[in-house]
């Protein structure tokens, strides 16, 4: 049995006495330590699927198990990182990172030690005493990553976490989260509608289509180690994904293969 097992999951929403199918018979198995990107156009149900996996929303039909147990509600074992960071503006950076540790009854001194360790990891240890409002968007998202890592979760869910950032900051953060996935052995489910981002990050790219939300194909990304955005292999996979969205004539894909 796979670590995460999504079986025949559907999700209906009631929209003005009309039932709307946000997810339709979705099946997916994910292994421990995998980096999965959910990729697709707006409205294809990426966030819906992620929210259900994280326990914030419920399925209408089907089952989801993580480590053999059905998903019922959010747990500190699986942390979600949101697009708008979700930092508490009234807490310092350090206290934000400590937030999840407080409910785990870890003594204050140890909490601070852990917070500093992960702030160091994301390159923000000099900002421990700042408030989130004093940081740039990229730095705030780094704080959110440190806060997630601090509770040593098994899975990290990320919903378009870098969408609001500029291109260079985004690339830096992509490299960082990729390194974190490898060094910290976290399972990461990452929602994006940026094709390059998916190819840089994913072990497998799950391509979804809307109306109703379905999984169209799953593309394995057989690139190993830190990824070079300009290497032929990278471009080959990128073209493959483009072709899936019919954004590129088929014959040109052939050229790279």
């Amino acid at each position: 049995m796979s670590y995460i097992d999504i079986q025949d999951v559907s999700r209906n929403y009631q929209k003005k006495d009309q039932s709307f199918r946000a997810l339709d018979h979705v099946n997916l198995k994910i292994d421990r330590g995998e980096f999965i990107c959910l990729l697709g156009p707006s409205g294809c149900g990426k966030s819906t699927l992620l929210n259900i996996l994280a326990g914030f929303d419920k399925v209408s039909a089907g089952t989801i198990t993580i480590g053999g147990a059905p998903v019922e509600k959010p747990t500190v074992k699986n942390v979600t990182i949101f697009q708008n960071y979700g930092l508490l503006p009234w807490r310092t950076v350090e206290k934000n990172v400590e937030l999840g540790l407080e409910s785990l009854s870890i003594p204050a001194e140890k909490r601070q030690q852990i917070a500093h360790k992960y702030l160091d990891l994301v390159g923000l240890k000099d900002f421990a005493q700042s408030h989130p409002a004093e940081l740039s968007g990229g730095m705030q998202q780094r704080v959110a990553i440190a806060r997630a890592l601090a509770v040593d979760p098994e899975i990290i869910f990320m919903d378009e976490p870098f969408a609001a950032l500029d291109a260079l900051t985004r690339m830096n953060l992509q490299d960082e989260i990729s390194a974190i996935n490898r060094s910290q052995h976290k399972t990461i489910i990452f929602v994006t509608h940026d094709i390059d981002e998916a190819v840089v990050l994913a072990d497998r790219i799950v391509i979804m289509t809307p109306n109703p939300g379905r999984i169209k194909t799953i593309i394995p990304v057989d690139l190993h180690g830190p990824r070079d955005r300009t290497s032929p292999d990278f471009l080959r996979i990128r073209d493959h994904v483009f072709a899936e969205f019919s954004l590129k004539p088929e014959d040109k894909t052939e050229y790279y293969i």
């Binding site: 914030f56 747990t75 500190v76 979700g86 937030l99 999840g100």
Partner: peptide, 11 residues
């Protein structure tokens, strides 16, 4: 999102 974060961290 504050409430979601709280829920996530078991607060």
């Amino acid at each position: 999102v504050y409430l979601k974060v709280a829920q996530n961290f078991g607060i």
